[in-house]
Nucleic acid binder design. Structure first.
Length: 306
RNA sequence: CGCGGGGUGGAGCAGUCAGGCAGCUCGCGAGGCUCAUAACCUCGAGGUCGGUGGUUCAAAUCCACCCCCCGCAA
């Protein structure tokens, strides 16, 4: 069970194993994008390409869904970024239960957006945890973890790709370990629990009074979506790439102190943030040099006034 | 039929409302200048103004249809 691109490598890893994948569950097709076109989730596309049966229940807490699942007779259910809380009836349905691939080192960053929150928090290391699912969200006993460092240029996008691959490798190892009896579930430590609720676009609005290092992390955590943003003359400007550093002088937070091909240097509450790639509302994304060439962005301009 | 912005030399933009010489910041080429800078100065090349049709003496500009890019909302 899974929905977005993060789950695809994990499904692929499962399909490559000798145990057959009896079915795939993902969220329903939803209208997406600019028009109103309904799009199939990545996991569904992958499953259909391999001829696997796909279930897309609107609600998971109805008997019809449990019946449909039972008909597939799974021995084990693997969940990765499915996007729904599963009720006890589903968790108890397979003889070997449900195991989950979670994109953090539990018990840190339980919840929907662990990757973005790991970057926001400035964590030096993150990883994936395979756990036996419990009713409480992301609170199940841990089977196995894999770590990866968070680099200074890592974004939610780059980490998602990496953690997805780690998860794909780890899920196989976890199943093997369970079969062989070499892995034993251990409860999560009660200390160090944090929660990572879904991030919203509004939280990506840059508050220039914050320190530059924090804004650097904000930009990376909100990349590639929903993207950090500020405003220029009342228009929304997305900030796709930026790095903390440079001398803001005594300029007030939000003030452009330098606009050149090497970046747009903006004063913050502490230090300066150099914007390297940005996008004006309605326009395509540009590197700082091209943006400056066309927009005549002069030093002294203030960003962030709505 | 969700709302909206955009397509103009290689890049990014102005010009469109009110039709009348193709403009700006860069990049590129040649020359000059400087101890030095995202250097600076001079000269130059480079355009089917997204496409098709229409209106007009005259269309980047007005009208119709089409293609493509993007922001918001979901």
């Amino acid at each position: 069970m899974g929905t977005p691109a993060f789950a695809c490598p994990i499904l692929e890893a499962l399909m490559a194993r000798s145990d057959p994948v009896v079915g795939v569950v993902c969220q329903p097709d939803r209208p997406q994008g600019r028009g109103l076109t309904v799009a199939a989730p990545p996991v569904k596309q992958l499953a259909l390409a391999h001829g696997l049966p796909v279930l897309q229940p609107t609600k998971v807490r109805v008997p019809e869904f449990a019946d449909a699942l039972r008909a597939l007779a799974p021995d084990l259910i693997v969940v990765a970024a499915y996007g729904r809380i599963l009720p006890r009836t589903i968790l108890d349905l397979p003889p070997h239960g449900c195991i989950n691939v979670h994109a953090s080192l539990l018990p840190r960053h339980r919840g929907a957006a662990p990757i973005a929150h790991a970057i926001l928090a400035g964590d030096a290391v993150t990883g994936v945890t395979i756990m036996a699912m419990a009713e409480e969200m992301d609170a199940g006993d841990m089977l196995l973890t894999r770590e990866t460092p968070i680099g200074p240029d890592d974004t939610t996008g780059s980490l998602t790709t990496r953690l997805s691959a780690l998860g794909a490798e780890a899920i196989g190892a976890a199943i093997d370990g369970l079969h062989a009896g070499t892995i034993h579930p251990v409860p999560q430590p009660p200390d160090g629990i944090t929660f990572s609720p879904p991030i919203e676009r509004e939280q990506g609005r840059i508050d220039w009074r914050r320190p530059a290092g924090e804004l650097d992390r904000l930009v990376r955590a909100f990349t590639p979506a929903p993207t950090a943003s500020t405003t220029l003359l009342g228009k929304v400007v997305k900030v796709h790439r930026a790095v903390a550093g440079g001398d803001p002088g005594r300029a007030a937070p939000g003030t452009v102190v330098e606009a050149s091909p090497s970046g747009i240097l903006v004063a913050t509450g502490a230090g300066a943030l150099r914007i390297l790639e940005l996008q004006l509302e309605g326009k395509r994304r540009l590197d700082a040099g091209a943006f400056v060439a066309g927009q005549r962005l002069a030093p002294g301009t203030c960003l962030g006034d709505a």
